[in-house]
Write a protein that binds this DNA or RNA. Structure first.
Lengths: 138, 138
DNA sequence: ATTATATTTGCAACAAAGTTGCATTTAAAA
DNA sequence: TTTTAAATGCAACTTTGTTGCAAATATAAT
């Protein structure tokens, strides 16, 4: 499905910024930061435009945000696009790569009595296979 | 164990700010934000001092940071103080309370081949028992 | 108890990220 | 082609993260 289709299906205007973000994320198999996405876009877009585009796309669940920590945010395609709604994410401490662990479920622990569950977010931190095979010095 | 002991045990100077943070977190059974802690401290401390105190205490694992999302950060006592090193956290979407689920483990999913695990962070979002019994309107 | 020393604090300053209002531009509907 | 509702870019401002430095202070040494 093209960015064009995705946007019209969600009744969003098909703007270059939105299409660019979606296409960038379709191409990348991993999650990307705002800067990473920005640098891959053909045209330049204002910071505000990016900000609002991410917000809109996230609300429509076309993309989803991965908060590794308060200073490391990445985006990936959302569950409006065949992604499993809830899945863990992997963060590589060496190369800072973030990847959706799509095929895996999140095991939700038993909550205290009377607590209601609604969502879970699980981030696994470690070293990815690329970095592991590259034994560069710390 | 008193804040006094904790600090000296870690070879940190026993300052009012650090003691205040630790005592506040000992009293509270839940995780607290910087603002929440600040408002409970007897004296006023500069933003920078708070910032550096949190940083130092976190490095010594006297406290630990809970990143609910990039705009919601809370602190709780750390594993240098008998807390289990890795545990899930619960976030109440109504009252914004954050609580350590201390007695529970995090189930780490199987990673892609060649990936190395080092840490996991799991946040459960939902409604706490207090908010659930209080059926106030959205 | 007093002095010396290494840390910590508060302030100023700046960087980065989040957010909003508004006039201009533009995509899509008529 | 015209109309109109939505998106963009810019400016402005808020909040949060971060550093350097001089003054203050906790601890070690005397």
């Amino acid at each position: 499905m093209s960015a064009f289709d995705i946007l019209s299906r969600h009744k969003l205007k098909r703007t270059a910024c939105r299409e660019g973000i979606i296409n960038t994320l379709i191409d990348a198999s991993i999650a990307l930061s705002e800067d990473e996405i920005k640098s891959k876009l053909a045209a330049h877009f204002d910071r505000t435009t990016l900000y609002r585009s991410f917000k809109t796309l996230e609300e429509k669940r076309i993309i989803h945000k991965v908060v590794v920590d308060n200073l490391m945010i990445k985006y990936a395609l959302g569950d409006a696009l065949s992604k499993k709604a809830e899945h863990p994410h992997f963060y590589c401490k060496r190369c800072e790569m973030v990847q959706c662990l799509d095929s895996t479920d999140i095991e939700v622990p038993r909550l205290p009595h009377g607590y209601a569950f609604s969502e879970a977010e699980l981030i696994i931190k470690g070293v990815c296979v690329n970095c592991k095979s590259t034994h560069y010095n710390e």
